[in-house]
Amino acid sequence: MRVGLLPTEGKSTYRFTVLFLATIGILISSLPVVVVTIMSFSASDNTGFPPPELSLRWYWEVIAMFTQEDASSAQSVVDSTVTSLLVAFIVMAISTLVCIPLAYALARGDRRIREGMELLFTLPLVFPLVILGIAFLLIAESLRLEIGIWRIVIPHVALVLPFVLRNCIGAMNGISVETEEAAVSLGASPLRAIWDVVIPLMRAGILAGLIFALIISFNEFTITFFMYTIDVSTLPIWMYSRTVSSLDPSTLALSVFIIVADVVLIVLVDKLIAGRANLF
């Protein structure tokens, strides 16, 4: 193709410029992660570049942190990891369960209501996280709420709703009313038709939403930074408190574990919605 957004044939300054800027974009996106990964294999005690020697010693240290309980630290890495995962799974379950019926109602309902609701549920995406963190903290403090893990779950649910809803609506868009009508004409009640026809067809979108909720909640830092307590704290907060003064290589090794988990999950999402829907 000689004409296009990115022509594949012929030499031109246009093609060169597009590729050049795209390369810079890729570098800016990926360099931090690449550097963290490289440095996590350093054999040295500090994080100077280049690493004098490569080793897996920091990875062993991370594994040791998880297997040998260190009684001295107030909040152990194991506890925060467990809390992080627990929060992420609860957030995932709640957000998906509330978004599936909403997506159905919006896709089949009035167009104007749909636009308004979509706007409402996009708000958390553009609402400043700091303010949200402070607001939730204010509520929790002034009402003196003793709700344990829920002080993190509730804000996280609000935060992931836009992503989960987008995916569910995207999945609904591909399902024509006719398939449902076909089920009803064969004798299914409207609710039964939703259960038998719509939900199975939405499956990929629902799964993508689930995974999105999981990664966003697991990686969330800002709101949790305001909401955590000594008893309820997540992995990103543990990492922050450990590295607030200086960076040590074992945190980098731990980061690589998180990077790998995130990459795997994103690839899964991308596979699920491959080309059929948009990530946002």
Binding site: V33, F221, S255, I258
Partner: peptide, 8 residues
């Protein structure tokens, strides 16, 4: 996790 990127 924004921390990981900040480390980077």
């Amino acid at each position: 996790n924004l921390l990981v990127q900040a480390y980077g």
